[in-house]
Design a binder for these strands. Structure first.
Lengths: 173, 173
DNA sequence: CGTGAAAGTTTGATTGT
DNA sequence: ACAATCAAACTTTCACG
């Protein structure tokens, strides 16, 4: 007998058709975003399904790329004094090569926590995690001045991380 | 017999003394930030420890608050078209009550993924996750104009999420 | 989707360094 | 104080109904 192709997973990998979650999928995904450490039995009890049904669904989320990864979130403050900063950056030369070089640099620097390409007056916003404002300054100089292709950057030090996370909203109804 | 107090955990909970990781702790924490789905045996093989030694350390990270939580990271693009936007906000009235009200609003809105209190010309930077620029506009109006305490805000739509994550740098040496 | 048996993982007591 | 070992409890996995 021929194994039937799983539609949702297969098509979604073509980056064409989105994964369409039902009400239970949305509840499960909300629970997994909150705490990925729960057992299949716990999750099953919370959504009213057997452990293996939960497992099948979660397997589907991974296959469809809906669940990209599972990670531990560290609290930098527990490891010692930490400075966060949001940096707005505009490049000087706007060629594809210059942009690619900048992005590669951001992806390789561990103290760059996030980097987004922007529309508008600024080209990028970058979130830096350092031990101190001094280290932040030194890193900015190296990252944004060393290369010579940054026209201007503006550093906005973070006073308080009011809300952090990577949570994606999943409407209830 | 009296149970000895676990120094690192107990003191760190006072938000005073940081947790001081050794070389193995740093390797483990780096692995857990990358992928929290590995088994204790796998982790043990990667750092050269027995599964139960790994378990004891990880238990310590949780107790010390170094590992805050374990979450599944979803790819919003796999669920359909998504618009990310970075919004810079300055409040009108700067009293403690006005700031508290704003923060509460950010924390309660699921489409606010991140919010940081800033030093400098802007009071806050907010990351919004919506289905479209139109929904982003509607949400901004409700969040930043509905309340009447925002002096001005600047929306920077995201063209490409070059690097995302909550990873905290853990130096090697 | 649920059930149940097999495989693998986590847990904690114990012992040794 | 920390690591290894081992057995019991629990989870995950998968074939089948």
């Amino acid at each position: 007998m021929v194994t039937p192709i799983e539609n949702r997973a297969a098509v979604t990998q073509n980056h064409c058709v989105p994964f369409v979650p039902d009400a239970v999928d949305r509840r499960l995904l909300r629970l997994l975003q909150e705490d990925a450490g729960r057992t299949l039995r716990e999750l099953g009890e919370l959504v009213g399904l057997s452990p293996s049904a939960v497992q099948r669904r979660i397997r589907g989320y991974r296959a469809a790329g809906v669940v990209a990864r599972e990670v531990a979130v560290l609290d930098p403050a527990a490891l010692g004094p930490t400075t966060l900063a949001v940096v707005l950056v505009t490049l000087d030369h706007e060629s594809a090569e210059h942009h690619a070089a900048f992005r590669t640099r951001m992806r390789h620097e561990p103290r760059v926590q996030q980097c987004y390409d922007l529309a508008g007056q600024w080209d990028y916003v970058v979130v830096l995690v350092t031990d101190s404002l001094a280290e932040c300054r030194a890193l900015s100089d190296r990252l944004f001045l060393g290369d010579g292709n940054v026209r201007r950057y503006d550093t906005l030090p973070v006073l308080d991380p009011v809300k952090t996370g990577l949570t994606v909203p999943l409407p209830e109804p």
